[in-house]
Design a protein around this nucleic acid. Structure first.
Lengths: 199, 199
DNA sequence: GCCTGTCTATGACAGTCGTCATACTAGAAC
DNA sequence: GTTCTAGTATGACGACTGTCATAGACAGGC
């Protein structure tokens, strides 16, 4: 999560994602991004000739890849994986961050890009859709591996991500992780039941 | 849904909600709002001395009340109400709009305000939290009336709204109602099962 | 040496934003 | 009539925004 000697270009994408998830796309200026990334402003045009739209799209793309990577790591570190445990791990990432660092860091950058750019920048909308897809895929694959029938793996993965994104929204508004813990508790049994069709 | 001889003040709040849910808060200018509402720009300061923040807060408030009102009307028009049918009706409102009018109108204004203002305007964050609460309350009450145990009524209502908000996000990004129909189908059985603890 | 390409630095551009100051109209109160 | 108030109209202000033009730094190739 730290800078760790990445190039200026990568730092800018990373900083853009952080600022977007906190303030939204429109409220995030390119000058803010370079300042946050401690990157030279003169390089903005050089690395992102497509302007702000390109920078935002790459930030969304980065966020989608990051989310997918987290899912893989959750699964790798799980001795006895189950659908409810996977969902709990995904939600716990947010519960833990809000609990330890507060709500200042904001929500999901993909959600922010969807809200701010869906009707204005077609390419950003596509980037957000791609990010959601890249995030859903490993979840669905994991569910299938856990015994969820193939036909229900992807729908359930969509349900998981929908509930998580919505709970993040409510948690931010309430400044309380209640919504996140609630959906974890209420959705878990349903998910596990789908993994064992015959009991 | 039409203007129908409301006063200029109310029209501005209504227009603000419409523009916010489409473009986000930051991208919605006050000049856009008065133009969309065909209201006199000179009245902006008069009706909303608190500036943009007040206008946004009232739009969020209006959206919360509107959502709560819709829930009541769904229930009133339902011969044999059940949790799954209520959720299906809530989701169908979005599925129908996206199917008939396209995605141009945008998503949920409360979600947009949460994403854009949570870390910048405390009062708007509170307005969003209040809107979610006002929306959740009638849903929870309806669930309790349908036989859901009191302790689970509100958590399930939160789950319903979380899943709905998340599915709206995904549907907008994908320009496809798939996510909305999916959560409706997958969440229904769980909701109805909670209404009949003993079968 | 020179040349070339990548990267950086800086300032200016035109546009938009929310806000505010000022002045005008209409109508009711008395 | 006058006075007061709600509502409207208009223009300007400073502070941004994203974009762009221009120039400089600094390497590697030859």
């Amino acid at each position: 999560m730290t800078d760790k000697e990445r190039g200026p270009r990568e730092r800018m994408v990373f900083s853009a994602a952080q600022l977007i998830r906190r303030d939204g796309v429109a409220a995030t200026g390119m000058r803010d991004v370079v300042a946050h990334a401690r990157a030279p402003r003169g390089s903005l045009r050089h690395y992102f000739p497509g302007g702000k739209e390109q920078l935002v799209n790459e930030a969304v793309d980065w966020a989608g890849r990051y989310a997918a990577g987290r899912v893989a790591r959750f699964l790798a570190g799980m001795p006895e994986p189950s659908p409810s445990r996977l969902f709990a791990a995904m939600a716990a990432q947010w519960i833990d961050e809000y609990g330890s660092a507060g709500f200042e860091a904001g929500g999901c950058p993909v959600a922010a890009a969807t809200v701010d750019c869906s009707e204005a920048a077609e390419s950003t909308r596509e980037a957000a859709a791609a990010a959601f897809a890249r995030w859903t895929a490993p979840v669905a694959r994991a569910l299938a591996d856990m015994g969820v029938p193939a036909a229900r793996a992807e729908p359930l993965a969509t349900l998981m991500i929908s509930a998580l994104e919505g709970a993040i929204l409510i948690a931010r508004a309430e400044r309380d992780v209640r919504a996140l813990t609630t959906v974890t508790r209420e959705l878990g049994p349903l998910l596990d039941a789908a993994a064992t069709p015959r009991s």
